[in-house]
Design a protein around this nucleic acid. Structure first.
Lengths: 130, 130
DNA sequence: GCATGTACTAACTTTTAGAAAGTACCAACT
DNA sequence: AGTTGGTACTTTCTAAAAGTTAGTACATGC
């Protein structure tokens, strides 16, 4: 085992070269969160998922799904038909993570009015002092 | 109320222009997560936080903290002394979010060995087929 | 036969993140 | 007296990431 490999096993997100940080970035990345939470609702095909996660480009969705599949959170099942038919779903690890993300999002969505109010206060204080 | 403002109040992260998505990006952004979880351990000064969150640049930490302060998750207390003395801490809203993030990170850190194994399997399957 | 849908990939452009240096001031050391 | 170091940032510039657009290789419906 090399030093780098050994370092990677000490799971501490605050450490620069830790593997957990890479995983965290895949999971909490802009599209990672949305893809995982969307897939928590069931099995989706590529374009159905793209319609669900509004605003994601084809490139980014493909990239995000590939990273999550490689990390073992997403299962990709392709039928070699023409036109291609690919189904994406969550693995058990993916479901565990997705449920935590869903909880986070619920808290955040409930807090949106408070955030909007906080932003208004902050901006007003800024413009008043400037 | 404009249409855009009304849209922003319908809290649904899957919608493009939703305010909750902006908040989600601040909270789950690369440095947002780490800053919030670090601050969940107590009060930190700017450079202490920077040492804690390894790899963050001064610019990004300042930017991240400003966004989180504006959203009402972080409290900034500055004493107008020279040299400047600024203390960052979490608000109650920030603590709620930070605790959920901490839970997520614990799951992710525990899953690191499984992720590494999944990545190895994925890469092997790829190189075998290529 | 031409548009549409499938699941992508590749090239190109724009946006964002990161690295490095600057700011303004003081305290201690040389 | 001048250099070094520390505070909390901001500014500038470059490198990396994200987004946009077009292309692939078919098949089905109009």
């Amino acid at each position: 085992m090399t030093d780098a490999e050994h370092e990677a096993l000490i799971a501490d997100v605050f450490t620069v070269a830790c593997a957990s940080r890479t995983v965290l970035e895949h999971v909490t990345g802009r599209w990672g969160v949305l893809a995982l939470v969307a897939l928590d609702d069931g099995v989706f095909r590529f374009n159905a998922l793209r319609r669900r996660v509004q605003g994601v480009s084809e490139k980014m969705l493909a990239q995000t799904l590939q990273a999550l599949e490689r990390d073992g959170f997403v299962h990709r099942e392709a039928r070699p038909t023409i036109p291609p038919h690919v189904e994406y779903s969550l693995t058990s690890a993916g479901r565990e993570v997705a449920q935590r993300l869903r909880g986070l999002i619920e808290v955040l969505e409930a807090g949106v009015p408070a955030v909007l109010a906080a932003q208004a206060r902050y901006d007003e204080a800024k413009t008043a002092s400037a």
